[in-house]
Structures are given as C-alpha cells and as structure tokens.
Amino acid sequence: MATGGPRMIGNVITWLNDPSHWRGTGTTDGIVTQLERHISYVGIALLIAMLIAVPLGLLIGHTGRGGSAVSLANAIRSIPSIGLLILLVVIISPHFHGRTQAGFIIPTEIVLMLLAVPPILAGTYAGVENVDPAVRDAAYGMGMKGGQVLLKVELPNSLPLVISGVRSAALQLIATATIASFVPLGGLGRFIYDGLAQRDFPQMIGGGVLVALLALLVDLLLAAIQRILVSPGVSGRFSKRADRRRGAAGEADSRVAAVDEAGVTV
C-alpha cells in the first residue's frame, strides 16, 4: 500500500517529465523512438487489414454472399493475441537466426492484422447491408452498373460504419501492440515490461499513460477524418447557419464540393 496513491502519481509525472526519458540514453531508447515504433507496428497492420477487410466487406455486402466469412472472422477473435504471438514467434524467429528483428516483427504484424480484420470487415459489411434498399433500387433503376452502385452509392453511405470499424480496430491494435515488447521488440509496451522487470513502477505506469494518450489521440484523429470523408447528408451534420447566413453558405458549399469529390474517388 505504501507505494500507491498520490505519491505514485507524482512519481509518474516526474518520470514523464524527465527529458532523458524522451530522448533516451546511450543504452536505452527513449519515448520518442518507442512511440515511432509503436505507431509503425500499428500503422502497417491496420493498413494491411484495411486493404483486406474493406474490399472483402464491400463485396460480401454488395453480393449478399459470403456471410460465413464474417462469422469466421469473428471466431478469430476468440484466439488470445498473446498466445498466438508467442506461437508465431517460436515458429518463425528461428529461421532468422536472431540476425534481424524480422523474426519478431512478422509475427507481431500477423497477430495485429488478424485482430484488426474482424471489426473492419464487420463494420464494412454491416454498412453496405444497412444501405436503404430504396436507395439501392433507385441506383440500379437509373442505370448504374453493379460497380457504380458499389462505389458511388453503397460505399459513401456505408462510410460511417466502415470508419467506426477502423476506429475500433485501431484502438485494439494500439492496446495490443504493447505485447510486441514481450517478445523483445520496441514500442510503448517496452516501458511497461521493463518497469515491471525492474520494479520501476513509475516507468511502468508512465508507459500505460502514454499508450492511453496515444489511443485517445488516434481516435480523435480518426474522428476528424470521419468528419471530412462522410457526406453531411449521411452524418446529419448539416450547417444550419448556412441556410440563413450568406457568408457561411459559401463556406459550406466549398466543403460540400470537397466531400463530393472525396465521395466519388474514395
């Protein structure tokens, strides 16, 4: 009990405020470097997962076939990430003979990617499936081809759910990427595991704080991206003042035009 409480919070703040912890020392990497690594593990896995899950989800939603792929992806969620990571590490890393970190990075990326696919796939699929049937009917009725209906109508209207799937995946990846530090890789998990091993609890908690802050920032960033990409007609974020005030109307129009372009090219 002696180590808990306000004094510990003070110690954590002291740890986080120490510039040498940010820059690193000759022997240890600092917060900046570990943050970069953490972001790159997450970013790569998220990108690959999106490249797989978004087209797949669009296709399943559009054709109405392959719903079992969604169930399968959901079943993957029951595999514990840490167990899978360690299994893949002991399988793969011997082939690299410890010369590079690839033996650890590849398993980490596989685990993170498997974690990210289910929420993105489910979000995309649900997004397309939830498009008002009358809207889809009208799109075909006006002579759009299947691909045009998918890209010009179903995708822009399913964007909120697609992006919310990506947001949920990103949060899970940021949390789970910490376990990369268990198989000895970098990332913000490094401070948690090192702090634990050295009984340096301010460092351990400081690492936790950094992970939480990163998660919050990334979620805010993705929320902002969502705001830019999703048409106000879909999100319901109409500029009410634009109707009344002449000046604001012009601004709203240019934003609308930008959204329209994005809606077509995404």
Partner: peptide, 26 residues
C-alpha cells in the same frame, strides 16, 4: 443492355430513394 435501357427510362419510386450522401442538385 440493362444499364442502357434504364438510363433511357425515368424511374420514380415510393420513398423517392434519393441518395442521402449527395446534394439535391447532384
């Protein structure tokens, strides 16, 4: 071809089926 046929035929349905993500003019 169906899409060419449909582009030559106006189509109005019960709940309008307007595209929610596009402005009225678009």
């Amino acid at each position: 071809a169906t899409h060419e046929l449909r582009r030559r035929i106006g189509y109005v349905i019960q709940h309008a089926g307007l595209f929610p993500h596009r402005t009225i003019v678009d």
